Simulated assay, not measured.
Amino acid sequence: MSTPTSPNSPQGLPLLDMEILRTFLAISETGSFSRAAQQIYRTPSAVSMQIKRLEEMLGRALFVREPRQVHLTPEGETMLGYARQLLEINDEAVGQFLSPQVGGTVRLGAPDDLGTRVLPGILSLFSRSYPAVQVNVRVGRSPDLMRRLDIGELDVALLVAEAGNRPHRLAEPVYREPLVWAGREGGIALQRTPLPIAVADRGCPWRRMALESLNRSGHRYRIAYTCEHTAAQEAATGQDIAITPLPRGLVHAPLRVIEEEEAGLSPLGDYEVLMLRMPARGAAVEALAEHIMEHFAGTPNATAAAVV
């Protein structure tokens, strides 16, 4: 495919592709082609191809590729500044024409894992398309978020639940993924008796699914690490203190997926991300809700259309 050029440029200079610039920015921020691919919902091979096209167009190497991470070259650092400016101008211009009529404030609730890992990227893109909408986020536990929505303190909430277990009749499934056991690569926590596990506080569906799985398989276990945040569970598991239940998509080095057959564990099952919104909350709420659903629908392992 030939690179488009500017008809008004005497040198016939090529035009930069905004999507490729978004990929370049994602790699720069994550330090990894694979993590960037997950962030922008593309395959690693597609990300590599985009950067290859950009480097060939500019005639410069933009990244130094190492086994575990990548770094910007001096030319890449220069390009980073231009990429940020161009993307901001592009998004501001497009947003002004596509959604100038939608404005207001949306109060959004989300559990810790989504609030820290997923929402920032989604809301960043949303703000570019809907610059007149302000989103105020509250991160908390699903039961508390449902209560706040019921009493009018939230407009829309994302919840985490065991697949098929709807905590509210108006909850809409937007994402589904297997929950798996994760342990330290090369660690020995899995060999200990009783089996040490790291789980969230009571009320967390992942905790309930994990304990039910262990009880089905007849494993002796002890709760070695209890915490409110998934990041703490990962940290404990990374130090080989325990094993922990995690969504398959969150298991990265130095952690690994523990397959059930290698340890005699029962399957954990799937979990769902659900959206709960009260009706007739306005155009801004509907715009954000649709934006979130579209992003989850394009995420690997998403089965929103198939969940009943």
Rank of each mutant, 00 (worst) to 15 (best):
P4D: 09
T5N: 13
S6E: 07
P7C: 07
N8A: 05
L13Y: 06
L13E: 11
L13V: 06
L13I: 05
L16E: 04
L16D: 03
L16T: 04
D17C: 13
D17P: 00
E19L: 10
T23K: 00
T23Q: 04
T23S: 09
F24K: 01
L25E: 09
S28F: 05
S28M: 06
E29A: 07
F33H: 06
Q38N: 09
V47T: 09
V47S: 07
I51Y: 00
I51L: 10
I51N: 01
L54C: 04
L54W: 02
M57F: 08
L58W: 00
R60L: 14
A61R: 08
P67W: 11
G76V: 07
L80E: 15
G81R: 15
L87H: 08
E88H: 11
N90M: 11
A93E: 14
G95V: 00
Q96P: 01
F97D: 13
S99I: 02
V102P: 01
V102L: 02
G103E: 04
T105I: 14
G109L: 03
A110W: 02
P111M: 13
D113S: 15
L119D: 07
L119A: 13
G121R: 12
G121P: 13
L123F: 15
L125N: 14
L125H: 12
P131C: 03
V133L: 05
N136C: 13
V137Q: 06
V137E: 03
G140Q: 10
R141H: 13
S142G: 11
R147L: 12
R148N: 08
R148W: 08
D150H: 12
I151S: 10
E153I: 05
E153P: 05
D155R: 01
D155P: 05
V156D: 00
A157D: 08
L159E: 01
V160K: 05
A161N: 14
G164I: 07
L170Q: 13
E172F: 10
V174W: 08
R176C: 11
P178W: 11
V180Y: 01
W181Q: 01
P194Y: 03
L195N: 00
P196G: 02
A200R: 02
R202F: 06
G203C: 09
C204Q: 05
R208I: 00
R208S: 07
M209W: 00
A210E: 07
L211Q: 03
E212Y: 04
R216V: 09
H219A: 05
H219C: 02
Y225W: 12
Y225Q: 07
C227E: 15
T230M: 14
T230C: 11
A231M: 09
A232H: 05
Q233W: 03
G238N: 13
G238Q: 11
Q239I: 05
Q239D: 09
P247Y: 05
L250I: 04
V251Q: 08
H252D: 10
L255Q: 11
R256L: 12
A263N: 06
G264M: 04
S266C: 07
L268S: 01
D270A: 09
E272N: 12
A280H: 12
G282I: 03
G282S: 02
G282E: 04
A283G: 07
A287P: 04
A289K: 01
H291D: 08
M293D: 11
M293G: 09
E294P: 01
H295P: 03
H295I: 15
F296A: 13
G298P: 09
G298R: 15
G298W: 10
P300H: 14
A302V: 05
A306P: 07
V307H: 03
V307F: 05
V307M: 12
